[in-house]
Design a protein around this nucleic acid. Structure first.
Lengths: 105, 105
DNA sequence: TATATGTTCAACCATCCGGTTTAATAATAT
DNA sequence: ATATTATTAAACCGGATGGTTGAACATATA
C-alpha cells in the first residue's frame, strides 16, 4: 500500500522530465538499445543511462539484455497506474464541461 | 508550445510529492484555507505554503482571498493536461488486456 | 490605534537531481 | 589473449527541493 504510493512518486517524478518523456515516446514505438537512444540527445551516454535507471525504478520501461546491448521497451503498467490515479478526478473536469454545455443550451 | 511542455514538467513534478497529492485530494472535495490544510500535516505553515505555491504554478490549484484567509481549491485543467498526455498511451495497455482477453477466449 | 490572526518572505540547511568525466565491467570480434 | 563496443559505476559540481525558524505583511477585531 505504502509501496503503491511510493510507486506513484517515482512514476510522476519520472514523467516530470522532458528527456524522459521523449525516451518514453520513442521506446513506446519501437524497442531501442541504450546507444540508439543516446543518438537522439546532446547529453552523455551516462546521462541517458541514469535517466533509464530512474524510469526502470518507476517501472515505466524494462530492459532486456541482447548480446552486449541493452534493449529498452515500454512497460505500460506504470502509466496505467498514473492513469488510474487521474481517474478519480476525471469527472471533475468532465462535469465542468457539462456545466458549460448546460450554459450553451 | 514550449510553454505547454513546461507545464507538463510542473504538473508531473507537483504530482510526484505525496503531501501535494494529499492536498489536491482535500481541496478537490471542498475549498479550504491554507491554515485548515496545515492542520492535517506535521510540517510547518511555511512548508505547506511553499507546496501550494508549487501547485499554483502548475495550475493544479487556485487561491482566492477571503478576508485574511486564502481559500484554496482545485483547478482541474492541469489534471486534464496530464490526462491528455497519458491518453496517447492508453491504447497500449488496453491492447495488452485485449490480447489477454483473446487468450482467455 | 494596537493587537491578534493568517499567510508569505528570507535565509539557511541537508539532500536530491541532472549533468559531467573517467574508470570499470561485460560481451563480441580479431 | 587482446582490442573494440556497449553500458554502468563512481566521484564530482551547480542548482533545485523540502524542510526549518524568524521576521514581515495584510486584514480583522478590540
Amino acid at each position: 500500500m505504502v509501496e503503491h504510493i511510493l510507486q506513484l512518486d517515482l512514476i510522476f517524478a519520472s514523467l516530470s522530465d522532458p528527456t524522459r518523456r521523449d525516451i518514453l515516446a520513442r521506446v513506446s514505438r519501437v524497442e531501442l538499445s541504450v546507444g540508439e537512444l543516446v543518438e537522439n540527445y546532446d547529453i552523455s551516454f551516462a546521462a541517458i543511462s541514469k535517466h533509464l535507471k530512474i524510469m526502470e525504478k518507476a517501472k515505466l520501461v524494462v530492459k532486456r539484455k541482447q548480446g552486449r546491448k541493452q534493449m529498452v521497451s515500454l512497460a505500460p503498467d506504470a502509466l496505467q497506474s498514473a492513469d488510474e490515479y487521474l481517474e478519480q478526478y476525471r469527472q471533475m473536469w468532465q462535469s465542468r464541461y457539462s456545466k458549460l454545455d448546460d450554459l450553451l443550451q
